[in-house]
Amino acid sequence: MAKGMVIIDVERCKGCGLCTHVCPVNILELSPDTFNAKGYRPVTVTDMDECIGCAACATICPDVVFTVYRQRRQRATATA
C-alpha cells in the first residue's frame, strides 16, 4: 500500500523536469510519448505505489502541478 499519492495537473506542466531531480524515490519522469496542449512533455509517475507523499515535487514545482496526499499518521502507526 502506497504511503502517498500525487495528482498531476498535466495541462499546467511545462516539462522543466525539476521534480524528476528532487524526487527521493525516483518515480517521476517526463512523459516519453505524450504531449499536453501547450506542446510540453508533462511529468508522469512511473510507480505510484512507491510514493511516500513527501511533497518534494510540489515544493520545487514552479507551476503548481502537484496535489499531494499522504497516509494519516495515526493510521500508519496502528498498522505498523
Binding site: G4, M5, G53, A55, A58, T59, V64, F66, T67, V68, Y69, R70, Q71, R72, R75
Partner: peptide, 12 residues
Amino acid sequence: IPENMELVYQYP
C-alpha cells in the same frame, strides 16, 4: 482518494 489519505499539498 483512498480514505486513509490526508491532503498534504494543494493549489493555494
